[in-house]
Amino acid sequence: MTEKTEVSICFGTLCFIMGGSAFELLSEHLDEELREKTLIRGMNCPGYCNQTSEYGKPPFVKVNNTLISEANLQKVITAVKKEVLHGADK
């Protein structure tokens, strides 16, 4: 079995207030197949929000090693699909 795609959601207050609360429903928005291949977890604020010129605007979500700024459900789902498919190629 291939490794699961890891989705790390920033649990900092800033990300949560500025739109990150939507990711509470991320797993409900993934279809069953994707959900099985995904591991959703939180991460303590890595401080990207202090360097917006470099990393972009919050909320931040990491899908495996890709950092998504101004993340929303659609962006994250697209990234998860891409990662899961990429994993299948290997």
Partner: peptide, 16 residues
């Protein structure tokens, strides 16, 4: 609550 959340951001109050 929205103001509470924003105030928490301003004063760097995190739950973690």
């Amino acid at each position: 609550f929205e103001e509470l959340g924003s105030l928490m951001i301003a004063l760097n109050v995190d739950f973690q």
